[in-house]
Computed example of a mutant assay.
Amino acid sequence: MIVRIMGEGQVRVDDGHLTELNKLDDELLAEVQSGDEDGFRRTLAALLGSVRSLGEPLPDDALEPSELILPASDATLQEVQAMLRNDGLIPG
C-alpha cells in the first residue's frame, strides 16, 4: 500500500504491517478523543516512525495514488481530529 505522510512524501508499506499500524492508530484515536496531548504526540511520532521504518520511500518524482494519508509530524491534535474517521486514520 502507498502511504503519504503530509509534507514528506510517499512510502510503500507491505500490507502485512497493517495490524501493527492499526494498533498505533487505535491508540492515537483514543488519545485524540480524550484530549491527551502528551499521549497524542508520543503515538503520532511512533506511528509515523513505524511507517518510515517499515516502508520504502518512493522517489520524489513518483506520483502514485495514496491509499492512506497521514498527518505531518508537527500536526496539532485539532488538525488530526479533523482527519479522523470513526475507525481512525487507517481503515480496519
Rank of each mutant, 00 (worst) to 15 (best):
M1Q: 07
Q10R: 10
R41M: 05
P59K: 13
Q10L: 08
D36M: 03
P71L: 07
T19P: 00
A30C: 01
V51L: 05
P71F: 05
S53G: 02
P65I: 07
R12F: 10
G16A: 11
A72V: 06
P91M: 12
R12N: 06
M6V: 09
M83D: 07
A30G: 05
D74R: 13
G55E: 04
E20P: 00
D38I: 09
T76Q: 09
Q10H: 06
G55S: 05
L18A: 06
L24P: 00
S53W: 02
D87S: 14
P91D: 12
G35C: 07
A45C: 01
S66T: 08
D25E: 04
D14W: 01
R85V: 11
D60N: 11
D14V: 03
L77M: 08
G39Y: 07
L47Y: 02
T19D: 08
L70I: 03
L63A: 14
D36Y: 09
E37N: 03
R52E: 06
M1T: 11
D14T: 01
D60C: 03
A46F: 02
D26T: 10
M1A: 12
E67C: 04
L21N: 02
K23V: 03
G88Y: 15
L28W: 01
E64H: 11
E8T: 12
D26G: 09
G9D: 04
S66W: 03
I69C: 08
L89I: 15
G55K: 02
R42W: 00
G92T: 09
E31Y: 14
F40V: 01
R85F: 12
N22V: 10
Q78M: 12
M83A: 12
D87E: 14
N86Q: 15
D38M: 06
G35R: 04
T76A: 12
G88D: 10
P71V: 06
D25T: 01
R41D: 10
S34V: 02
N22H: 14
L89Y: 13
D61C: 05
M6R: 15
I90V: 15
R41G: 01
L47I: 04
R12K: 13
D26M: 07
G16S: 11
I5L: 08
R4N: 05
E31N: 12
D61Q: 10
P65T: 10
A82D: 13
I2D: 07
G16P: 00
E64Y: 09
I2H: 10
D38Q: 13
G92E: 08
L24Q: 08
A45P: 00
G92C: 08
N22Q: 14
I5T: 06
G55A: 07
G49A: 02
L29P: 00
Q78W: 07
A45R: 10
E27D: 13
D61N: 14
G7R: 04
T43S: 09
A62R: 11
E37R: 15
T76W: 08
D15L: 10
M83E: 09
D25V: 01
L58H: 05
S50H: 06
I69E: 14
L47M: 06
I90K: 12
L29A: 06
